[in-house]
């Protein structure tokens, strides 16, 4: 493929894909940061307790729920 053939469309698609991936990575990194502080209260052991694992899972899912809620709340203000 030469550069003129690849130009706009393919390159745009590539950049769009990379943008999506970056957003996903960002989200996972942010939630891991926040939920680590909330769920891992003691010194890290050689294995997560089931409580810690569950807390991390719930924490991520509830954060997403809350994020939706806040978005709706703001939309209803306009």
């Amino acid at each position: 493929m030469d550069s003129s053939a690849l130009n706009s469309a393919d390159l745009q698609r590539f950049i769009e894909q990379e943008k999506q991936k970056a957003m996903v990575n960002e989200m996972v990194a942010k939630l891991t940061d926040v939920c680590w502080d909330k769920c891992i209260t003691g010194t890290p052991g050689s294995k997560f307790s089931s409580g810690e694992t569950t807390c991390l899972t719930y924490c991520a899912q509830r954060y997403m729920d809350m994020s939706m809620m806040i978005m709706k709340r703001f939309q209803s203000m306009q």
């Binding site: 989200m27 996972v28 990194a29 939630l31 891991t32 939920c35 680590w36 891992i40 010194t43 890290p44 052991g45 050689s46 997560f48 694992t53 991390l56 899972t57 719930y58 924490c59 991520a60 899912q61 997403m64």
Partner: peptide
């Protein structure tokens, strides 16, 4: 242990989402 657990936590979060 902390490094291992943090990597594991990242996996758990990503699976949860």
């Amino acid at each position: 242990r902390c490094v291992d657990r943090y990597i594991e936590a990242t996996g758990i979060i990503s699976r949860a989402l």
